[in-house]
């Protein structure tokens, strides 16, 4: 498969270029916080409920809030209908995504409670867990949850022996490696790092650096989106 033409990728991007991203804050009336994200061909909605009482009760912690994260793909989100409901893959993604956002949340403020995050993938085009984490992070801020910072996430990978930022479907399916990263850009703390495929040590280091610049760009978009929610209204 041909991945490059005149130094540009199949979808007309440079190797270090992100896909177009759009954030919409507070799209759900009944959720405490919410965010809709379009990231290239991905369409993702995140809803945050809480802090609220924990059900079932035995899950509650006496001195802090618990975080629950559900990543779910709609049956129509991919070309071939996906059987609805949690599967091995989505359970794993829910777990790693929860662990990606967990370190920045101040859980001690809300003993015996839960903060529930629901991420629905409406349309998938590679990098859905990253898009989900970005949306969840903004939704948490929108819900007024105290946090040390925002988590931003994006993927890097390798196609045609070249390290590229933010793979889309074809590159993900036929490429050589895919590596999602999530981090708090201010502190530089990486909270999620997975890899599928093979990278040499040099490539890995190059990829990590590229991923960090991607996350930094996304962090800026997240802040814009949150500020816009209130400034937009003021300009009316």
């Amino acid at each position: 498969m041909e991945f490059f033409k005149n130094g540009k990728r199949i979808d007309d991007r440079f190797p270090n270029e992100l896909r177009p991203i759009k954030f919409d804050v507070g799209v759900l009336e009944r959720a405490d916080g919410s965010c809709y994200v379009e990231h290239g061909g991905n369409k993702v909605i995140a809803a945050v409920y809480g802090p609220r009482a924990v059900h079932p009760r035995h899950l509650q912690e006496a001195n802090r809030a618990i975080i629950r994260y559900r990543y779910n793909m709609a049956s129509f989100s991919v070309e071939e209908r996906k059987r609805p409901g949690p599967d091995r893959r989505s359970i794993e993604i829910s777990k790693v995504s929860r662990e990606a956002i967990d370190p920045v949340i101040i859980k001690e403020f809300f003993p015996r409670s839960t903060i529930d995050v629901f991420v629905e993938i409406l349309q998938a085009d590679a990098g859905t867990r990253s898009a989900g984490i970005n949306a969840a992070s903004v939704a948490l801020a929108d819900a007024g949850v105290p946090m040390r910072g925002l988590i931003s996430s994006c993927a890097v990978g390798k196609v045609d022996d070249t390290v590229v930022l933010d793979l889309f479907k074809e590159e993900d399916n036929y490429g050589q490696a895919d590596m999602p990263i999530a981090m708090d850009v201010r502190t530089g703390e990486v909270t999620l790092l997975q890899m599928d495929g093979h990278l040499t040590l040099e490539e890995f280091e190059q990829a990590l650096e590229l991923g960090k610049t991607g996350c930094a760009t996304i962090a800026e978009m997240q802040r814009e989106a949150l500020i816009q929610k209130y400034q937009g209204e003021e300009n009316e």
Binding site: A141, D184, L226, I227, Q231
Partner: peptide, 9 residues
């Protein structure tokens, strides 16, 4: 007025 909007971090 002019309180600035801030985000976590």
């Amino acid at each position: 007025v002019d309180k600035t909007i801030v985000i976590p971090g």
